[in-house]
Amino acid sequence: MTDNVVALPSEEQFQARIDAEEKIEPKDWMPEKYRQTLIRQISQHAHSEVIGEQPEGNWISRAPTLERKAILLAKVQDEAGHGLYLYSAAETLGITREELIDRLHKGTSKYASIFNYPSITWADIGAIGWLVDSAAIVNQVSLQNTSYGPYARAMVRICKEESFHQRQGYHIMMTLMEGSDEQKAMAQDSVNRWWWPALMMFGPHDGESAHSAQNMKWKIKRRANDDLRQQFVDQAVQQAHAIGLEVPDPDLKWNEERGHYDFGAIDWAEFERVVSGNGPCNRQRLAHHVKAHEEGAWVREAMAAYDAKRRARKANVA
């Protein structure tokens, strides 16, 4: 009885609590579907943080200056930390870390598709920090109000740290745009490649998203995909133009009446292709994670052996 005891647990009471903007905490009664949806969403989020280390890690040894290298290292370290916050939040729902990793490796649990694109130039590190992390922030800020307490609290912690990620990315772009023609071209090329995948991060149009209505009712999701996407476009276009970058969308136009940018159609066929495993780097990303996990097995075994030995020694003394 460490948490509130609900007298007669029922879906009605559960919904009433959510409607009253109260959080659901780990030991509360909750519908099984709510639990499973959260496990799926939080673990997908956790996997994204961890898999996202790969395209960035690719440039740690080749960062242009020692300072950029230190910054990139610190950022990748943060991503690992974010993964940890989120795995821990998922574990409060009664699933183990091992099961979560196993689902990732079997492909039954996904991660953000954006990380299936390669980081082929230094400017991509700028674009990831600026565009990918900006898109993530827009989504995560809305999730600070998600109905599940541990997830909401993890989001607050993560959002605090993300602002550094976004700024260091924009700073890389800004610096390139103040450089030679070649550097400017590199920055522009990178935006050309990352822009559309960043827009896809918000997911399908809400009408076509299978779980949207229920997740909104349960307040797992707080704002519509298209809403969040529009906010991202509005702020990113302004940021791009401020440093002389173009957005690769011939249909992009300020709409005075709406007070928003109109933008072109997203290539959903590409989105489907990448989500279903056939993006440029899907196999590489997963294979690398499996390899790192397997090669780290001896460390986990050694730690367990050491722990067992220490316990035995303590028991002998006592």
Binding site: F164, Q238, Q239, A242
Partner: peptide, 19 residues
């Protein structure tokens, strides 16, 4: 000794919002 972990270390151009 890692001031670069703080967003405030990165100076942003004037007039750019939401960073």
């Amino acid at each position: 000794d890692k001031p670069y972990r703080h967003a405030s270390m990165y100076e942003m151009p004037e007039g750019v919002d939401s960073l």
